[in-house]
């Protein structure tokens, strides 16, 4: 029985190539935003402004979860089923 991953793995290499690039670009964007959030949260916490740290953490966690579930769409390429 075929599912989404099977269909994706059989897709044309051009398609998986584009998908992979898009995935990586979005992950890099997420990480960039998280670096900014960590910097801002830390800077404000050290400057006795503690209200920023918690929202920054929540936003960072949401971005991580997005990135984590994003990996489901990672093309796995052709699986080697043949055993020597």
């Amino acid at each position: 029985m075929s599912n989404f991953k099977d269909a994706q793995n059989k897709a044309h290499p051009n398609k998986t190539n584009t998908l992979m690039s898009a995935l990586i670009v979005i992950l890099i964007l997420n990480v960039s935003m998280q670096i900014w959030l960590l910097y801002t949260g830390l800077n404000n916490a050290l400057g006795q402004n503690r209200d920023i740290a918690l929202p920054a953490f929540i936003a960072s966690l949401v971005l991580f979860l997005i990135g984590f579930f994003w990996l489901y769409f990672l093309p796995m390429g052709y699986r080697k089923n043949k055993k020597k």
Partner: peptide
Amino acid sequence: FLCLVSGGLAAGSA
């Protein structure tokens, strides 16, 4: 690896 880094940054924020 990017996802791992993302998790590390979230842990840092926590």
